[in-house]
Design a protein around this nucleic acid. Structure first.
Lengths: 221, 221
DNA sequence: CGACTAATGTACGAACCAGTACGTTAGCTA
DNA sequence: TAGCTAACGTACTGGTTCGTACATTAGTCG
């Protein structure tokens, strides 16, 4: 049930602040992602850890701060993934396509993160705003995009004059929508955007779209 | 405060089932969009109508059914707007661009609807699934896309072999993301995707993207 | 090894909130 | 105009849920 299994001691508790804290965060991430901020139950989170509700308040102070901590860790994970991006040895077209694919994969593999972001937007990003760790944090991917874009535009390969933030938004929007709106889209149109057999199709579609946009013939402009 | 102002009668209530029902729906839409399903308060909805909580249960049965009714009406509005689409006299490229722009405008003008969709996705689209009015409802826009696409592909103008549902997803994803993730995106990257002065920029970007994708030179394939 | 503190558990309270029992009245209809 | 019913209001309840007061123990350091 819980995240880690350990040879349960018959009596006497084990003290490990770091692990307790991290276990609370694991379960809280699931619970908030499952039910939204207001739908999430502090008692439920406590029940699914091997500690008690008291510890949530001891370590985090309250539900609100717990949610903020969950967000901070979730954004940390994606930052780490982005820091491992290694695409700048590729030509600009291949590099952008690869970047889009990595973004695509990351969204697919972290639906809980997508849900947390949706939830945080419902609440006007107030937790991000209140967090010292998260304000204007940017993203390592942005720097990568900036450099690829510059190189592609310089060489004349990329005709679109788009900046890195907007291109990031374009790529993210497709990846995000596919995961976040999976349920309503499926219910209304009868198509599961996250069906495994459609995965390659949508992955290629995203790459095609971004490359087509960047390299389009703009004779008319 | 309430949606409609009327010369308040000093004593004695006015009876108008249709208006009471519709007023509840108006306020409920705002409240659910504001705070999410679990964050929304039935008492708060009641307080902001000129009727009482009793009436919400009288007309809708409960919070869950009220939310479903809110969704049904919201989807009805977008369907009506889509039915007024009149783009098939244009050439395929212009028609698709126009369709994208109309979609773009509709998303921008109905942020509450976007929020409701986000919320419904957090809850796995269970209300849509439970609704008789909303299951597999499709969308009038889809038929329009289907026809434009067929015409564009037949004439050889459109090189992408994409179907209407996927193209609809592509267009929607950009429009949706811009509105739905406005807050987190702004907080993290310092750019307001819905700033009025950026509106034309993003509207053009969407059109360029879709047209580039549809008409891309696919020599390599 | 004794004492101190960080870490943990238990039990409870107070507020909140969805839903309802019961009573009332407007307005139509015969 | 009597009476009937759809529409409405008031007041309450039972359960839930965040948060905390208080008690306890593990591990560490002098």
């Amino acid at each position: 049930m819980t995240t880690v299994d350990e040879p349960a001691r018959p009596h006497g508790r084990i003290r490990d602040a770091a692990r307790t804290r991290s276990e609370i965060l694991d379960v809280a991430t699931q619970e908030f992602a499952r039910a939204g901020y207001d739908g999430a139950r502090v008692d439920e989170i406590a029940a699914r850890t091997r500690t008690t509700k008291r510890m949530i308040y001891y370590y985090f102070g309250g539900k609100e701060q717990l949610f903020t901590a969950v967000l901070e860790r979730a954004y940390g994970v994606i930052r780490e993934a982005e820091q491992e991006l290694d695409v700048e040895h590729l030509d600009p077209v291949a590099a952008i396509r690869r970047l889009a694919e990595v973004t695509f994969d990351h969204h697919e593999q972290h639906p809980d993160f997508i849900r947390l972001v949706s939830i945080e937007n419902i609440h006007g990003a107030e937790h991000i705003a209140a967090s010292e760790k998260l304000g204007r944090i940017g993203s390592p991917a942005l720097d990568v995009i900036r450099r690829i874009l510059a190189s592609g535009q310089e060489s004349g390969l990329f005709t679109a004059d788009v900046d890195a933030v907007d291109l990031h938004a374009m790529i993210s929007s497709f990846c995000f929508f596919r995961v976040a709106n999976r349920h309503t889209f499926g219910a209304l149109f009868g198509r599961d955007l996250v069906a495994p057999e459609q995965r390659e199709h949508y992955r290629a579609m995203l790459g095609d779209m971004v490359i087509a946009y960047l390299t389009a013939d703009r004779a008319g402009d």
